[in-house]
Nucleic acid binder design. Structure first.
Length: 135
RNA sequence: ACGGCAAGUGGUUCUGUCGCCAUGUUCUUUGAGGAUAUGGAGGAAAGUCGGGACAACGCAGAGCACCAUACUUCCUAACGGGAAGGUCAUUUCGUUUUGAAACGGGCUGAACAGCAAGUGCCACAGAAAAUAACCGCCUCGUUUUGCUUCAGGCAAUGAUUGAGGUAAGGGUGAAAACGUGGGGUAAGAGCCUACGCUUUGUCGUGGCAACACGGCAAAGGGGUAAACCUUAUGGGUUGCAAGGCCAAAUAUGCCGGUGUUUUCGUUAAAUGCGGAAUAAGAAUUGCUCGUUCGACGCCGGCGGGUAGGUUGCUUGAGCUUCGGGGUAACCCGUGGCCUGGAUAAAUGACAGAAACCGUGCACAUACGGUACAGAAUCCCGCUUACAAGCUUGUCGUCCUU
RNA sequence: GGUCCCGUAGUUCAACGGAUAGAAUGUCAGAUUCCGGUUCUGAUGAUUCGGGUUCGAAUCCCGGCGGGAUCA
């Protein structure tokens, strides 16, 4: 890491710094970012100049319209977070991350049923691979 | 015994791997990061329906309006909550009785103050929906026809019309002007009377009280207040996106239209035009008084900035042992315990096993299942959701006596 | 998270506490036309759900469900 901020992003961890929580950045992601569909997700992505966060910022969102109960929304978010945490090495080890930029990713869950963990994990791997296929 | 329904209780456990959040300790250290220990959703965390704590606001404050509640006593910080009791209603059981019914007990329910303070409403039907009136009944009189034994009488007590009395009877309706018998009268009527019902007032007894029982007097007033309202009691308004601090950025910004008031100028005079602000006025919770300010309000357009951190924030009407008081809700004393604080949202994911339930010929094996549901300032209630197991009640079927 | 509002035909709206719940539009059928449109006639179809007050509830009261608005 050339960043003088010593944020640990190695290994299968997913800390607070890797989560996208700035209101400004989220607005820019949805306004200026591009997106593609990969069932069951709508994926927003946006490259910005170096922000005070980790090289990749992740946003997970589940619509209240599709899942009325807070329990279900929490469950889906936990499953998605877990599958990203286990497979984020695809991004970090690919050498496609530019060192002077930050990549923001927004994952919007669009399915109307709760999919099992193994299905979600396969989809996440496909999405993460798609990022360096495009570049 | 099995099954259904209702109420209450209850809210699965263990191991491994990889993680998340908070706090403490410690190491490296400019920021920050690492290591380690401990802890980490609920009985409803839900709905946001009541009530508080806490906080800000009004320039102090008062009254009105508005809103809420409504048998009694008690509990509680408070409540539209809870406990006990009273009354009424439904249902059930027992006793007495030929029966009707009465008495006693139980379950369930009640926005359970006032329509006998005033106003409003009561469709259709019905004579009439609350002042009593219409048909009818009865009395007295007017006019008039026929017959006749002719100052009169008769025509089923003729017909007609006027005045008065009356509420017995009148297909209805959710509801009909105290009920039944007798007297009374021209006809009738609680008009009188016997038995009974209801209400109000008052006295006595019991009870803290609601109320119950009994005596006396007056009365008979249909329903509706989850109709307006009256009475009593309570409530200032807004809510942690409240509010405080730090950082960043700052402009009670500019323009146009319009309204209100006073004054000056213009003018013959102005409601017009131009300029100004002593008082008019404006602000102040919806209004008034009061208070404060000295011009202000309303509408439209243009334009700038921040939307980060921290505090509020978790020790509290807290949980609990023992003892005491109380029918109970609950209270008092004493000892012990510390038990989530996230902020685009932590409290998890995966794998395996156990426990329980169902399917299955049976032990085993196998397959499937384990509810409702996720803290967002914090409490006390209420309401709603809920798998198995357990407890109680009730209904049905079968078996035994 | 707090606060507030609304729920009537497929859609947009009506309806003093009086039930046969009305109008426009839509849909369907028929007539008119060579066919379609327009027009005419007829049909269709609703009070978000459960309790309560009342003789009677879309309306009044309570609770659930669903939808929407707003906050610095």
């Amino acid at each position: 890491m050339t960043d003088n901020r010593n944020i640990n992003t190695q290994g299968e961890i997913f800390g607070k710094a890797e989560r996208l929580h700035s209101r400004k950045l989220i607005e820019r992601l949805f306004k200026e970012g591009d997106f593609f569909f990969k069932y069951p997700f709508k994926v927003f992505y946006f490259e910005t100049e170096k922000e005070k966060i980790a090289p990749v910022g992740i946003l997970i969102s589940v619509s209240k319209k599709n899942f009325k109960k807070a329990v279900d929304r929490n469950k889906i978010k936990r499953l998605i977070r877990e599958s990203y945490r286990k497979n984020k090495s695809i991004l970090y080890e690919s050498d496609h991350l530019k060192k002077d930029k930050s990549l923001l990713i927004g994952l919007i869950y669009t399915a109307k049923t709760i999919l099992p963990f193994k299905v979600l994990e396969k989809k996440i791997i496909l999405i993460l691979r798609q990022f360096f296929k495009e570049k």
